[in-house]
């Protein structure tokens, strides 16, 4: 009996060994690294950027080329967010898997009901993406769709562990949908609130929470705040404005300057997973962002 059990275990381990093959996943943002870990706990996951880096301005560094060379799967936001560096990494890493044709490229925006698409874009409009707003780490309601698509992609790349991915995906979606109710209830006081933003980073979060960004510290998307633009914002009627919202990776001078003149409180949100201590994974990112939005602080 003892002998049989150990034989069974050995045979079991032999069968299990194909699934011990760990997928190597390269992500463009820490949010997708978190999502990948939640869907493929055994995978070797790397994020090319941190929450403190502007994702439009990443250098195609030697270290990133080396990492991408080894990737089985590349997960990025897409909609041209990474257009200034991802194509160079793909070209230089010579990884045929990490391309659309190779099947190992997953753009999250392709699985999101993208907001603010433009039929006509030219550069006088600033850094506007024709494909719509790419900051989809805050597309709370779409995360279920993203999870389904990512699960299918993982199963396609690593068929031996199909059942594991199915289970992890279902578990993620179950938890996420539960949390969505918790977050919605908690964020009730935020419904209808108007804010001044800095870039369109929180477009999806505000839309989901029923908030509205009525002004932007940037004169045009991607164009840094200018004195004349801030001066015009300081003259706005702010009786209906709740707060000035910016991200931990952005400089605070523009927001502070305006807050002192308009006497508006400020909220500093994580841009991505890791942007604050509490935003340690995708759940924490949304939860912490709502907590921070609920408690604006005044600037003196």
């Amino acid at each position: 009996m003892h002998f049989n059990l150990s034989t069974l275990l050995t045979v079991g381990m032999l069968f299990a060994s194909p699934s011990a093959f760990a997928l190597n996943i390269f992500t463009c943002q820490p949010d997708w690294a978190s999502l990948a870990k939640l869907h493929a706990p055994d995978a070797d996951v790397f994020s090319a950027t941190t929450a403190f880096q502007d994702p439009h301005y990443i250098q195609a560094r030697p270290s990133l080329i080396t990492k991408m060379r080894k990737a089985d799967l590349v997960i990025c936001s897409g909609a041209e967010l990474e257009v200034g560096w991802l194509p160079e990494l793909q070209r230089q890493s010579r990884n045929t898997k990490a391309t659309a044709a190779g099947g190992g490229l997953f753009f999250v925006t392709e699985h999101v009901a993208v907001l603010d698409k433009h039929d006509h874009v030219d550069r006088s409009m600033g850094d506007v993406h024709a494909g719509g707003n790419p900051h989809v780490q805050f597309a709370v309601a779409d995360m279920v769709n993203i999870s389904v698509a990512l699960t299918a992609k993982l199963q396609q790349l690593d068929p031996a562990s199909q059942a594991d991915y199915a289970k992890a995906g279902e578990q993620f979606r179950h938890q996420w949908q539960q949390q969505m109710q918790v977050w919605k209830a908690k964020a009730k006081p935020l419904v209808g609130k108007h804010v001044v933003g800095y870039h369109t980073t929180y477009r999806y979060l505000f839309a989901w929470l029923g908030m509205e960004q009525v002004a932007d510290l940037e004169p045009k998307p991607g164009v840094s705040p200018t004195m004349s633009h801030l001066a015009s914002l300081s003259k706005l009627d702010t009786r209906d404005t709740y707060a000035i919202v910016y991200a931990t990776h952005q400089t605070n001078d523009a927001a502070t300057w305006l807050a002192q003149r308009n006497h508006l409180p400020v909220v500093v949100l994580p841009q991505s997973v890791g942007g604050t201590d509490a935003a340690s994974d995708l759940f924490g990112l949304i939860n912490n962002s709502i907590d921070l939005l609920l408690t604006p602080r005044s600037v003196n």
């Binding site: 880096q53 502007d54 301005y57």
Partner: peptide, 11 residues
């Protein structure tokens, strides 16, 4: 050699 505070090249 390139340097940016926390790797954030924007500012």
């Amino acid at each position: 050699w390139k340097w940016a505070p926390q790797g954030n090249y924007k500012y």
